[in-house]
Amino acid sequence: MQTRLVAYEALNAVQQQHLSALEVHPEQLPFCGDMYCALNTLLVNPSPGVKGFALLADDLPVAFLLLKRPPCLPHWADEHSATLHAFQVDRGQQGRGFGKACLQALPTAALQAWPQIKGIELSVDTDNVAAMGLYLGAGWVDCGEAYRARVGFERRLSWVFGRGSLDTQKM
């Protein structure tokens, strides 16, 4: 099966419709939100600081994510990074390597969108064991506590192009 990560604006109408029907398991909603909210963030008030990407498997969307840059960058992020948000793999497609495929394609897509960035960051709830395992297994670096969340702390993870974590770099 061929996969590729493409910008939302490159999707045709059928792909956009298919993407809008993407659903995650109910227990994942607190961590990643739903497609309605993700697409609302992307489309209702368009900003050059927000870009959406869909992972296509044989030309059908199976996953989605948002990347953000200033002025939409969260307070905990390094100004030289992009941040990952609303990462969702369709519930019927989970466990087939599509999350890993997104993470592998993400650095190239992020650099194409914003060539000046030094890395990508994300914030993940420590109770989201599956996501922590996916990110750490893919080579992301745990940079420590990002901020106090609704319950406990979120961890900040980074992917720096060709180097260690963003915290250890002079930018």
Score class of each variant (00 low, 15 high):
Arg4Met: 09
Tyr8Ala: 15
Asn12Gln: 07
Gln17Tyr: 09
Gln17Ala: 15
Leu19Val: 09
Leu29Gly: 13
Pro30Val: 07
Pro30Asp: 08
Tyr36Glu: 00
Cys37Glu: 07
Ala38Met: 10
Ala38Glu: 05
Leu39Gly: 04
Asn40Ile: 02
Asn40Tyr: 12
Thr41Trp: 09
Leu43Ile: 11
Ala57Cys: 10
Leu60Gly: 03
Cys72Phe: 06
Cys72Val: 11
Glu79Gly: 14
Ala82Phe: 02
Thr83Trp: 07
Ala86Lys: 09
Ala86Asp: 08
Gln88Ser: 14
Asp90Met: 06
Gly92Val: 07
Arg96Asn: 13
Gly97Asp: 01
Gly97His: 01
Gln104Pro: 00
Gln104Ser: 06
Ala105Thr: 00
Pro107Phe: 05
Ala113Gly: 06
Pro115Asn: 15
Pro115Arg: 12
Lys118Pro: 05
Ser123Gln: 08
Val124Ile: 12
Asp125Arg: 13
Asp127Ala: 06
Val129Phe: 03
Val129Arg: 14
Ala131Leu: 03
Met132Lys: 05
Gly133Thr: 11
Leu136Gln: 11
Leu136Arg: 08
Gly137Glu: 11
Gly139Asp: 05
Cys143Ala: 13
Arg148Cys: 01
Arg148Met: 03
Gly152Ile: 00
Phe153Cys: 15
Arg155Gly: 08
Trp159Glu: 00
Phe161Ile: 04
Leu166Lys: 01
Leu166Ile: 09
Asp167His: 09
